[in-house]
Design a protein around this nucleic acid. Structure first.
Length: 501
RNA sequence: GCGGGUGUAGUUCAAUGGUAGAACGUCAGCCUUCCAAGCUGAAUAUGCCGGUUCGAUCCCGGUCACCCGCUCCA
């Protein structure tokens, strides 16, 4: 299947050409961490800068026909731990899990209900919470037709672990196979200061959003922003994922691009719809168009703690090779209500109310619409989308990056490594590199060099030949079609500028 | 965290209880007027730790990493 996008080959290409390496490769790697190589960092920066431009520097026109207002921040990765208590991450970002020694299955301890026979029977039957079908089937099988009413219902987490010996696990045949609950804390911990104790325990942020909420008041007091407005941030975030998988898709250290849009509660729906549409346009503008990009609304039972009320969350998902025919999340647009500002107001005793002079001096805590995108997931989507096997060209594959995203915009290639060609090439290179990311490649035959540029997704190659010496034109070779045209040397900047729009 | 699989050069693959090979890629030189051409040469590998053995890349144990399936995934 020559035209299938094979994840193994994509990963190999990423390493071979310097996009993405396993972190600490020479020590055998480390699970859940990846490094960006010379081309990977260019690609990531291009995506990052395009996001910043489309949010902060040149934000879209709002529904009322006027440009919206968004400012940026860059907050610390480590915050006062109270911030994570207030945000709900200390309490809610960890789950107690139990394993079954017999069946090797794992369950959320707080989702298991234990049925204690009212007649004093010694076998306590564990079932999934809120799953009546499962309970009925289970009781039919192991309790001879008794019903739920014949039992006292107790949460597993409320049992003493010494009582686990009586518990029959949900899929087990024998009692007493459940392990003690283990905490799965998804937040990385460290210590601020050289002496480790509980007193100076700190967390590496699991999302960049809280750094925005913590600075909401500072920004409001210093920046002359008015409701509605946004605060944007790009940065690293850390999660102790149980099981990092799928290359850089689920890693323990990753990068987010988040914008918190503050607005009057009555306008939340308008802005939620507006931002979702804008975010779709963003990804489409850099090449993720078509059926590989979809919208998906979250089901009620998967909503975050902050989004249970309100309008919920809608994801923008991309069909990665490893999720196909399904999709994987690229970005979520959530209605966080006033959850975060309320929580911080309560915990920090700092007033988060906004005095809206344009609404008759109404005081309110604004609602938040949050478009939160994965930068590193975006990079992966761009690579997967661009990866194009093509048996008709020497490289066998090329990366069809949108020119705006391509790590190198053009390569300058003297046809022959001798005579005047290299001199002219170097001059063109020096001129163009002031404005664009440019490769200068002199050695080896021209076919090899075209092929190499195809593999790293360089959209244009400018080749210097004898005619160049006579009339100051070069051949411009286009990556996708391999078509060539002659362009005047003094028009090359303009040529690239036009193509990169 | 569980189960299964895989670890040999940058990549894709060979081979072997006793000197680890190839192709492509990379680098250098020659050649070359437009798509990995040709010639010459070079560098680079048995994931890591331990055991058995005279000798282990090969057998065994552990570990790490990756892949698949569960589980999990604010």
């Amino acid at each position: 299947m020559p035209n299938e996008k094979d994840m193994k080959e994509i990963v190999a290409l990423c390493k071979r050409r310097g996009f993405i390496f396993a972190a600490s490769d020479i020590y055998g790697g480390i699970n859940g961490f990846w490094d960006y190589g010379p081309l990977g960092v260019e690609l990531k920066n291009n995506l990052r800068d395009f996001w910043w431009k489309s949010m902060v520097k040149n934000p879209p026109i709002g529904p009322d026909g006027h440009p919206v207002q968004i400012v940026g921040v860059d907050s610390s990765i480590i915050q006062n731990p109270k911030a994570w208590v207030a945000s709900g991450h200390v309490g809610g970002f960890s789950d107690p899990m139990v394993d079954c020694r017999e069946t090797k299955k794992r369950y959320r301890a707080d989702h298991i209900v234990v049925l204690k026979p009212k007649d004093g029977g010694e076998r306590w039957i564990a079932v999934m919470e809120d799953d009546d079908d499962f309970m009925a089937a289970r009781l039919k099988k192991v309790a001879k037709g008794k019903t739920g009413d014949d039992f006292a219902h107790v949460l597993l987490v409320d049992l003493d672990t010494s009582e686990y010996a009586k518990v029959l696990a949900p899929d087990a045949k024998e009692v007493g196979t459940l392990t003690e609950p283990k905490e799965f804390n998804l937040m990385f911990e460290s210590h601020a200061g050289p002496i480790q104790s509980d007193d100076n325990k700190v967390y590496l942020r699991p999302e960049t959003a809280q750094g925005i909420f913590l600075n909401y008041k500072n920004v409001l007091d210093s920046s002359r922003v008015k409701m509605p407005f946004g605060i944007a941030q790009i940065g690293k975030a850390f999660r102790n994922e149980v099981n990092p998988r799928n290359f850089i898709f689920r890693s323990r250290e990753f990068e987010q691009m988040e914008m918190e849009w503050f607005c009057h509660p009555d306008e939340a729906k308008t802005w939620r719809d507006f931002w979702f549409e804008q975010r779709m346009k963003f990804w489409e503008a850099i090449g993720l168009a078509g059926s590989n990009l979809i919208k998906r609304d979250h089901d009620d039972d998967e909503l975050s703690h902050y989004a249970k009320e309100g309008l919920g969350t809608a994801d923008i998902e991309y069909r990665f090779p490893f999720t196909a025919p399904g999709y994987g999340e690229l970005e979520g647009v959530a209605h966080r209500c006033d959850f975060d500002l309320n929580a911080h107001q309560e915990h920090s005793k700092t007033k988060m109310q906004y005095l809206d002079t344009e609404r008759d001096n109404e005081k309110y805590i604004p609602h938040v619409i949050e478009p939160a995108a994965g930068l590193t997931r975006g990079v992966l989507a761009l690579i997967c989308e661009a990866y194009t096997p093509d048996s008709n060209r020497p490289s066998g594959v090329y990366l069809n990056f949108d020119p705006k995203m391509a790590p190198k915009k053009a390569a300058i290639l003297p046809l022959i490594a001798k005579g005047d060609h290299p001199k002219v090439a170097e001059k063109i290179y020096m001129d163009l590199r002031e404005e664009f990311e440019i490769d200068l490649d002199i050695k080896q035959n021209i076919g090899k060099r075209y092929a190499r540029q195809d593999e790293i997704g360089t959209p244009y190659c400018f080749t210097i030949d004898d005619q160049t010496i006579e009339d100051n034109t070069v051949t411009a070779r286009e990556r996708n079609t391999m078509a060539q045209e002659r362009v005047s040397i003094d028009k090359l900047s303009e040529y690239l500028r036009e193509k990169l729009k």
